[in-house]
C-alpha cells in the first residue's frame, strides 16, 4: 500500500512540476533545460526553513510557510538566471539554463550545512498526499485561467512569433521574465512538497537527467496544453513503475524503453499527444 501511495504522491508532485515548466517552455516557448535546479532550490530552501528555522507553529501553518519559502527562493533564482539568459534564444538558451541548473546543483553539493554530497536528512513530515493534490489542483486552475486571460495570450504570442508579438505591444523581456520567474517559483513549491513528503533530499535528485524527465512530461502531453501536462506527468510516473512489474528482461530494460518511447513519440507526433490543445476541446480552448 505504501508503495502505491508513494507513486501517487510522486505523480502529484510531477503534475505541479510539469505545469511549471509548461509555463516557460509550452506557453512562452523558452526552451529551458535547467528546471530541476529550480525544483532543487525550492526543496532545499524550504527544508532549511523547516530544519533550522521552524517556528513553533502547527505543522499545517509551517508547511504553508515552507511552501512560500520554496516559492520565493526558486523565483529569486529564476530572476537571477532569467535576467541575463533570456536574451538568448533556442539552443543557446537551452545550453545556458542547463549550465545554470548544474551550477545550482554543484553549489548544493558543496554546502555542508544542507548535507552536501551525503544528502539532507531529518526533514519533518509536514506534507501528505492531500497537500500534494491540493497544490496540483491550484496549479491547474492557475494555468488554465492564465491561458484564457490577456496576460496569458501575450505570453503565448511570444512562442508563436517574437517579432510579431513585440509589434503588438508585448514587452518581450517583461513577459519572458514573468514566465521564467513564476515557472521557477511553482517548481520551488513542488520542491517544498517533495522535501516534506520524502523527508530526505539528495543533490542527484536535481541533476540534468531530471530536467530532461520533466521536459519529456511537458512534451509528451503537448507544449502549451495544461491537461496534457497532467496526463504527461501521470503517464511518465506510472509507466516505468508498471514496467517494473512486467518482470524478467523487461524490468531490467525498462529504463531503456523510456527513451525509446520518447524517440518514437517525437518521430510520430513531435507536437505531443494533445499539441497545444486541451482535453475537452474547444470549450476550454479559446472562449474567455
Amino acid at each position: 500500500m505504501d508503495y502505491y501511495l508513494q507513486i501517487l504522491l510522486i505523480a502529484g508532485i510531477f503534475i505541479t512540476l510539469t505545469l511549471s515548466l509548461n509555463l516557460i517552455n509550452g506557453f512562452c516557448g523558452q526552451f529551458s533545460l535547467g528546471h530541476a535546479g529550480f525544483w532543487g532550490v525550492g526543496a532545499y530552501a524550504s527544508a532549511v526553513y523547516s530544519v533550522y528555522y521552524a517556528l513553533p507553529l502547527p505543522a499545517a501553518i509551517n508547511m504553508m510557510i515552507a511552501i512560500i519559502v520554496g516559492f520565493i527562493a526558486a523565483a529569486l533564482s529564476g530572476i537571477l538566471i532569467g535576467v541575463p539568459c533570456l536574451r538568448l534564444k533556442g539552443d543557446y538558451l537551452a545550453i545556458a539554463t542547463l549550465g545554470f541548473g548544474e551550477i545550482l546543483r554543484i553549489i548544493i553539493t558543496n554546502t555542508e550545512k544542507i548535507g552536501g554530497p551525503r544528502g539532507f536528512i531529518n526533514i519533518p513530515h509536514w506534507a501528505n498526499i492531500i497537500w500534494v493534490y491540493a497544490i496540483a489542483a491550484v496549479a491547474v486552475v492557475f494555468m488554465i485561467n492564465l491561458k484564457r486571460s490577456s496576460f496569458g495570450r501575450a505570453i503565448i504570442s511570444i512562442r508563436e512569433d517574437e517579432i510579431a508579438s513585440e509589434n503588438m505591444g508585448v514587452n518581450l523581456f517583461k513577459y519572458k521574465l514573468f514566465s521564467f520567474t513564476i515557472g521557477a517559483g511553482i517548481a520551488g513549491i513542488a520542491g517544498a512538497l517533495f522535501a516534506h513528503t520524502q523527508q530526505f533530499l539528495h543533490p542527484s535528485n536535481f541533476n540534468f537527467m531530471w530536467s530532461v524527465i520533466i521536459l519529456v512530461m511537458v512534451i509528451l502531453g503537448g507544449q502549451g496544453s495544461v491537461t496534457g501536462s497532467v496526463v504527461g506527468a501521470i503517464v511518465l510516473t506510472i509507466v516505468p513503475e508498471l514496467l517494473r512489474f512486467a518482470g524478467g528482461n523487461i524490468a531490467a530494460w525498462r529504463m531503456t524503453i523510456f527513451p525509446v518511447l520518447l524517440i518514437l513519440l517525437m518521430l510520430a507526433r513531435p507536437q505531443g499527444i494533445f499539441g497545444p490543445h486541451e482535453l475537452g476541446g474547444s470549450k476550454l480552448r479559446s472562449k474567455a
Binding site: 521536459l215 512534451i219 527513451p259 518521430l267
Partner: peptide
C-alpha cells in the same frame, strides 16, 4: 529532444 532520448538510451 530526440538526441537527448538517444543519449539516455
Amino acid at each position: 529532444i530526440t538526441a537527448i532520448g538517444t543519449s539516455l538510451f
